[in-house]
Design a protein around this nucleic acid. Sequence first.
DNA 1: CGGCATGTTGCGCA
DNA 2: TTGCGCAACATGCC
Length: 283
Amino acid sequence: MPELPDVEVARRRLDHALRGATITRAHSADRRILRPKAPSALSRATKGRTVRDVSRRGKWLKVLLDDGGRLFSHLGMTGWWVERDASAPTERSERARIDVAREDGRNASARYLDSRRFGRLIVADHDIDEWSTLGPDPLVDGIDATALAATLAKSRRAIKDVIMEQTILAGVGNILATEALWHARIDPRSRSNALTRADVGKLVRGLGKAIGDELDVRMTADTDEWSDIFAVYGHAGRPCPRCGSRIARVVIGGRSTAFCKTCQVRRGTPAKTPRSRSKKRAI
DNA sequence: CGGCATGTTGCGCA
DNA sequence: TTGCGCAACATGCC
């Protein structure tokens, strides 16, 4: 369940399980997820080490060890960390585990679950490029609206596409982008460089609202179950919660995008509409 | 059975 | 060079 708020929840959970504890055993033999692919890579780099802290930037997690070693985790599409007792059985889709001995005497175990295996677990002794090249994280760094406006002015692409670019804003995925643009009343097809300074201000507030709302729900829920609290994401064909118009669906950058044609304003020229093929009108 | 899914990368074309 | 479109990855759910 990987977008910024979900990854932040995973970070807090991993931090709770691992920080200050000594790793007694670590294992993953999944050659699709683990880097380097050698099954011994995770264990060799982490066994006997103490966890300094767990941090996050965008959708990446970083476990920092006492010897400077690091473990980076990206959840892909279906990745997730859970905390268990070290004696708990292996569970469905479990791809990795990190067992620790804690000072409180508890033997905890962090388990990485990932059915589709699009996630990554990268062992390194330095920060990897995927981490270092990330743009500002809305929670860790905050969003500087003026700086963002300057960046957005450089591209003619659809605004939704641009804010999902991890080097521009770290952690914004399809759900957050869709929801934030609805909050900001901006049509996701708008050209990035056509937004006004006021639009960017609204977008920044929209992102904050979308992230905050989602984080609140994830933190107060006593389950990892998926809950649909969205205004428009996944709601194509249903009424807009704000104005009642029917929510439309388009594809931007290959990703399904829901929005309200009535209360979300379009900026810039309709990006060239090459072919208006009479594709099936879904819904 | 077909369609779709919270992410990322890489290729080909205009 | 920029901007897209699309396939691929692998699995589950409706």
